Structures are given as C-alpha cells and as structure tokens.
Amino acid sequence: ALNRGDKVRIKRTESYWYGDVGTVASVEKSGILYPVIVRFDRVNYNGFSGSASGVNTNNFAENELELVQAAA
C-alpha cells in the first residue's frame, strides 16, 4: 500500500501528469474510488508555472500509480 510522502509515477494515460512523478499527500481509507491524493511540482494547464492558480494535486487509484521511492 502507498503511504504519505511516497514518490509515485503516474500511469493513467489520459492524465496531464502521465509519466510524471508526484508525492503522495494523503491516502483516504473510506473506500472511495480514487483514494490517493498526489501532489506535483508543476501545475496543470489551469494555471501558469509559478502561479497559485493552477491545480497541482489530483486523486488517483492505487493501480494507476507506480512506487518510485518509499517515504523515509
């Protein structure tokens, strides 16, 4: 299972961040479909780089994520 702070690569092909590595911000335990919230260094097309207006978190299912580096 994934944990907060883990570095993960995104495998959801239609995602803006496909192939990117993000950090797990939190994992919901309530049984929702996309329980893993991942935070990225770059914002998506809703904002400009360096601006706070873009979105830099997204929810994924565990099977859409590949663990790159476990949290220390």
Results as ranks from 00 to 15, higher is better:
Ala1Met: 12
Ala1Asn: 11
Leu2Tyr: 12
Leu2Ser: 04
Asn3Lys: 15
Arg4Lys: 13
Gly5Asp: 05
Gly5His: 04
Asp6His: 01
Lys7His: 07
Lys7Val: 08
Lys7Arg: 10
Lys7Trp: 06
Arg9Tyr: 06
Arg9Val: 07
Ile10Gly: 00
Ile10Trp: 00
Lys11Tyr: 03
Arg12Tyr: 04
Glu14Cys: 14
Ser15Asn: 03
Ser15Tyr: 00
Tyr16Gln: 04
Tyr16Glu: 06
Tyr16Ala: 05
Trp17Val: 01
Trp17His: 02
Tyr18Val: 04
Gly19Pro: 01
Asp20Lys: 05
Asp20Ile: 06
Val21Trp: 03
Val21Pro: 00
Gly22Arg: 01
Gly22Thr: 02
Thr23Trp: 06
Val24Thr: 02
Val24Phe: 01
Val24Met: 00
Ala25Asp: 14
Ala25Thr: 12
Ser26Gln: 13
Ser26Ala: 14
Val27Glu: 01
Glu28Ala: 10
Glu28Arg: 08
Glu28Ile: 09
Lys29Tyr: 07
Lys29Arg: 13
Lys29Ala: 13
Ser30His: 07
Gly31Phe: 11
Gly31Leu: 14
Gly31Trp: 08
Gly31Arg: 08
Ile32Gln: 12
Ile32Gly: 14
Ile32Pro: 08
Leu33Val: 11
Tyr34His: 12
Tyr34Lys: 10
Tyr34Phe: 14
Tyr34Asn: 10
Val36Thr: 00
Ile37Asp: 03
Ile37Lys: 11
Ile37Gln: 11
Ile37Tyr: 06
Val38Leu: 00
Arg39Pro: 00
Arg39Ile: 14
Asp41Gly: 05
Asp41Phe: 07
Arg42Met: 05
Val43Tyr: 15
Tyr45Cys: 15
Tyr45Phe: 13
Asn46Cys: 15
Gly47Phe: 05
Gly47Asn: 14
Gly47Trp: 04
Phe48Tyr: 09
Phe48Pro: 15
Ser49Trp: 09
Ser49Glu: 15
Gly50His: 06
Gly50Cys: 15
Gly50Asp: 14
Gly50Met: 04
Ser51Glu: 14
Ala52Arg: 03
Ala52Thr: 12
Ala52Met: 08
Gly54His: 05
Gly54Ala: 07
Gly54Asn: 03
Gly54Thr: 04
Asn56Asp: 12
Asn58Ile: 08
Phe60Trp: 01
Phe60Gly: 01
Phe60Thr: 02
Ala61Asn: 10
Glu62Cys: 14
Glu62Asp: 08
Asn63Met: 08
Asn63Leu: 06
Asn63Val: 09
Asn63Ala: 12
Glu64Lys: 00
Glu64Gly: 01
Leu65Cys: 07
Glu66Val: 06
Glu66Ile: 12
Leu67Tyr: 05
Leu67Phe: 08
Leu67Lys: 06
Val68Asn: 02
Val68Asp: 02
Val68His: 02
Gln69Tyr: 08
Ala70Ser: 12
Ala70Pro: 12
Ala72Ser: 13
Ala72His: 10
